[in-house]
Design a protein around this nucleic acid. Structure first.
Lengths: 192, 192
DNA sequence: CCCAAAATGTTAGTAGATAACATTATTTCG
DNA sequence: CGAAATAATGTTATCTACTAACATTTTGGG
């Protein structure tokens, strides 16, 4: 065998399944694609699919950026307001996004928007962002459920961010995402 | 051709199904309750259930207050900020809520919170509120998709309202809902 | 009472998802 | 290397949400 450590078989299977699933969703639609078909084209049984993804929807729904955002928010100076902290953290996070990451995000959100059964779940995705924001905004000593004030601000920020991202994806990524984020946060600031 | 409207029986069946479903969800859990069981206890076939509710989830997910809110927002003076208009409209709407309506809302949101499969859908429920807010906030001449600014503000407001309602339901309705709404909007104002 | 529309039932089927158990790869270690 | 241990996958059976097509009953106005 060749030298380096290749990804485990499990990881390869998972990647293959996801790749094929997204391609099929794109080609023939989400509803029209059955898990059985995805598994078949990947050369595995349908059970293998469910061992890698808890549900068909999870192939599309996933967001790995929230932990990063939580850290970035916590890194902001406490002297500025909560919304400002989130705003700045999001911009910093965007700068760290590579071109390919950005393209993958665009493709995933675009797919989400085009699938009626999943469109409503965008807010679910948003919910995990909100949780991350809550953790990032909570005072250091705080434990347990965050206060209503923190939750309200986190909810507002994640909703505003979501609006910007959706706008970006609907415009096929032609507009600058950071610019749209700025615009959305500016709108919130102006409307309070 | 005589075509009268005679809707009575259908409405009774629907009400019975909903009543029994909510009771069973409460008694034995959402997952543990099958549509077949609901139908059986209601003395109808499972097809009748699906003729009245597009899905099992829809029995719990429903919100009839959004059109009212849209109207109330539009009725606010354009001289105040967007967030202020929504805030005031929500308070007015709450005043119009009767005691029984309030209790029904509390029970429904409480059930939503206790059902893992539906908990994430709270935001979906609020998505329709967001749409109503967008319509209420949009300038009169505007048509088609609202601007990013309007969408961002509407998203933030619906998210803030959601946080307050969830807080209220989690506290078993012991706190004053209007007070919590005030607190949440105040937090947003203070964090911008 | 009559009859057309509305409401409901029957039956059969698709698809997502889980469980239990068998089988095959992969890795680890003597 | 080669066998034991472990991880990954396959088979099969089953449950449940949900839909389609067609048959049957109920409802309420003329």
């Amino acid at each position: 065998m060749s030298g380096g450590s290749r990804p485990s078989k499990s990881q390869r299977t998972r990647a293959t399944l996801q790749e094929i699933a997204l391609r099929l969703f794109d080609e023939q639609g989400y509803e029209a694609t059955s898990v059985a078909q995805i598994a078949q084209e990947a050369g595995v049984s349908h059970m293998t699919f469910f061992r890698h993804f808890p549900s068909k929807e999870e192939v599309v729904l996933e967001d790995e950026y929230n932990p990063l955002l939580e850290e970035l928010i916590r890194g902001q100076p406490a002297t500025v307001s909560g919304v400002e902290r989130v705003h700045a953290a999001v911009l910093t996070g965007l700068e760290r996004l590579g071109e390919s990451d950005r393209y993958a995000l665009l493709r995933r959100v675009g797919l989400l928007l085009s699938i009626p059964a999943l469109r409503s779940r965008i807010d679910e995705n948003l919910a995990s962002a909100r949780t991350a924001f809550e953790r990032g905004l909570a005072a250091d000593g705080e434990d347990g459920t965050p206060s209503l004030a923190v939750r309200a601000v986190a909810a507002a920020c994640s909703a505003v961010l979501s609006a910007a991202v959706v706008d970006w994806a609907q415009g096929e990524g032609e507009q600058d995402l950071a610019g749209l984020v700025d615009e959305a946060f500016r709108a919130l600031r102006g409307a309070v």
